[in-house]
Amino acid sequence: MSTQSVGCVVGPGDTTLDEIELFVVPTVVGGGKPFCAPDRRLDLTLEEHRVFPSSGWMYVRYSVSR
C-alpha cells in the first residue's frame, strides 16, 4: 500500500468540486499541511461511510453543499 499527500484541488470561489472521498487512518501526527487554504470553507454532507474494524480505518464520502 502506498500513501501520498493530499492537497486542496480548488481555489477560493471555485465551485468545480462535487465530492470528497477520504480514508481516515488512526494515526496521530504532530504537524502537516492544511487540506485547504484558511480562507476556503467547504460545507459537506456525509453521503457514505464504512468502518474497517480490523484496521481501525474508516472510509467517508462527502458531497459539497452548494
Rank of each mutant, 00 (worst) to 15 (best):
P53K: 03
T27R: 13
A37C: 04
S5Y: 09
M58Y: 03
I20V: 15
V64E: 05
P53D: 07
T45L: 14
G30W: 10
A37P: 02
G56Q: 06
V10P: 05
G30Y: 09
G13V: 10
T45P: 01
P34I: 00
E47W: 01
E19R: 11
E48D: 12
G7N: 02
Y62R: 02
E47S: 07
R41M: 04
M58D: 05
G11V: 03
T45F: 08
D14P: 07
F52P: 01
C36M: 06
F35D: 03
V10N: 08
P38R: 04
R61G: 02
S63M: 02
W57P: 00
G11A: 11
L17M: 12
D43Y: 03
R50I: 05
P12I: 09
H49N: 09
C8E: 03
E19N: 05
V24T: 10
E48R: 11
V51F: 15
S54H: 15
P34G: 02
I20N: 09
W57L: 15
E19I: 00
V29D: 04
P12F: 14
P38W: 02
G7K: 01
L42K: 08
G32D: 06
F23W: 13
G13L: 07
T16E: 08
G56Y: 05
D39C: 00
D14E: 15
G7E: 01
V10C: 11
A37S: 13
T45H: 14
R61H: 07
K33E: 11
D18Q: 13
W57H: 15
D18F: 07
L22S: 06
L44P: 03
S5N: 12
V9E: 14
E48K: 05
V6S: 06
H49V: 01
A37L: 10
R50D: 12
G31N: 06
P38M: 02
R61M: 02
D18P: 00
S5E: 13
P26E: 08
I20S: 04
T27C: 05
L46A: 08
T15E: 09
D18S: 14
V25R: 11
K33D: 14
H49C: 04
V6P: 00
F23Q: 13
Y59Q: 11
H49S: 14
G7I: 00
E48G: 01
G7C: 00
T45Y: 10
D43S: 07
C36R: 01
P34Y: 02
M58W: 02
S63N: 04
L17C: 08
V24W: 08
L17D: 07
E21I: 00
G30N: 14
S65R: 15
L42N: 09
I20K: 01
T45R: 15
I20E: 11
C36V: 09
L17T: 02
